[in-house]
Design a protein around this nucleic acid. Structure first.
Lengths: 232, 232
DNA sequence: CCGGATCCGAATCGATACTG
DNA sequence: CAGTATCGATTCGGATCCGG
């Protein structure tokens, strides 16, 4: 039996053995945004020890979740295999689940470009989507998000994107939203767009302020019903 | 910042901090089957150190995922909160994902009643369901599974169920299936019911042998398409 | 700058023993 | 039954180092 095996013959156990080690799911989160170099991953996961990153990447390759690709344009990158990409809906659902109980950021917590990108994907509701094209700034991170035809695409503007990222669309966005961590409350439906502006949670620094309401309409994670139906 | 925090402000990170520690998801898997006493959990997770079980249960309670309920009939049990139960679709999806690459069992791997119950739920396809009522034996584990109205219910027959489990239906099942770990290949669609019988992967020891084909029709986890569309 | 490998103290895990 | 206590074996985290 493998060293860190749980000793059970079960699909979930297998999954946890593949991607349940510390840091593994966060590495996969970043790779869901796009292929990344070793250094990109290290920057996107500021607190990961380099030896752990190295070890996890090897394990994930061995498990068929990640592969290492020498890329002509920019050296060596890691990317998800099709099997690894099959985790995407699970990661989005897990992100939604965790979002429900996210409090305020702890001291030292950071928001990275890839985590914000995945947060947008997590919160995106295709069924409510309407075309839009805006910039979102949170801390040092700036993204360009575009919705066309109920499809969301996100590109990283700042910090300067890794060479592998998709290029942002040319032309100007409809508006620029600058937000703090409190934007969680807007996405969570705790406050309205107007309240977000009033409480300085978010501001529209360019374009029509109405874009914030459109944002809040499409990017939404509803709380689970707080029923407590169990009665011993 | 908390001791084992990842230092990121992100929904997925929060989720991983809540349920990503070693053994936590397997504890949750067992609790998805029903409330369990400390000892039930320890039996269902034969290789978990008791201090880890104790620690995880405390952490999961603190995270609002699990609660401890003094139950009149049988002492103290742990059960999922509504928030914890919200993990069910995610756990089923993760189980399906891991199932795809489950090889043969390693030496010493066990199949527990709760893991087999969740495996059945994982593989169940409501859209293909037809009424059925059968016993499934794998190793020492025996379950009674019943499908009515496209809903699956599973009860544990052996080993003797924890007092909290639902009672099995009265009356005889339509058939009794005895299988080995190779039943994975039947569920995975690698072999047909006839081949499973021919290869001694499964046998119908009571009732009409046709029930195995009906089983295979409703309980199925298809492989992900093995496309490799990336071309650097 | 990129892609790691190495080293070492601190924290966690795993196994066993023990207790109310 | 429901855990706590103890202790050696691993792993993790942080820092540094190194070849390209």
């Amino acid at each position: 039996m493998a060293a860190r095996s749980y000793g059970q013959y079960c699909g979930l156990t297998r999954a946890v053995e593949l991607v349940g080690e510390r840091w593994a799911l966060l590495i996969i989160r970043d790779l869901l945004v796009g292929p990344r170099r070793y250094t990109d991953l290290k920057q996107g996961l500021p607190r990961i020890p380099t030896n752990i990153l190295s070890t996890r990447l090897k394990e994930l390759q061995e498990g068929g979740v990640v592969r290492r690709v020498p890329l002509a344009r920019c050296g060596l990158v890691y990317e998800l295999t099709p099997y690894g990409r099959a985790l995407e809906p699970i990661m989005l659902a897990l992100g939604r689940w965790g979002f429900q109980t996210m409090g305020d950021p702890a001291e030292g917590d950071v928001v990275t470009p890839d985590s914000l990108t995945m947060a947008l994907r997590t919160a995106f509701r295709p069924e409510r989507a309407e075309d839009a094209d805006f910039e979102l700034h949170v801390g040092d991170v700036a993204l360009r998000a575009r919705v066309r035809d109920r499809m969301l695409t996100v590109a990283q503007l700042a910090p300067p994107a890794p060479p592998v990222g998709g290029a942002p669309p040319s032309g100007d966005p409809e508006g620029v939203i600058v937000a703090g961590p409190g934007i969680r409350r807007l996405i969570g439906g705790e406050i309205t767009a107007d309240e977000a502006v009033a409480q300085d949670v978010a501001a529209v620094v360019r374009g029509d302020e109405e874009i914030l309401a459109r944002f809040a309409g499409m990017f939404r994670i509803d709380p689970i019903e707080p029923i407590e139906p169990i009665d011993p």
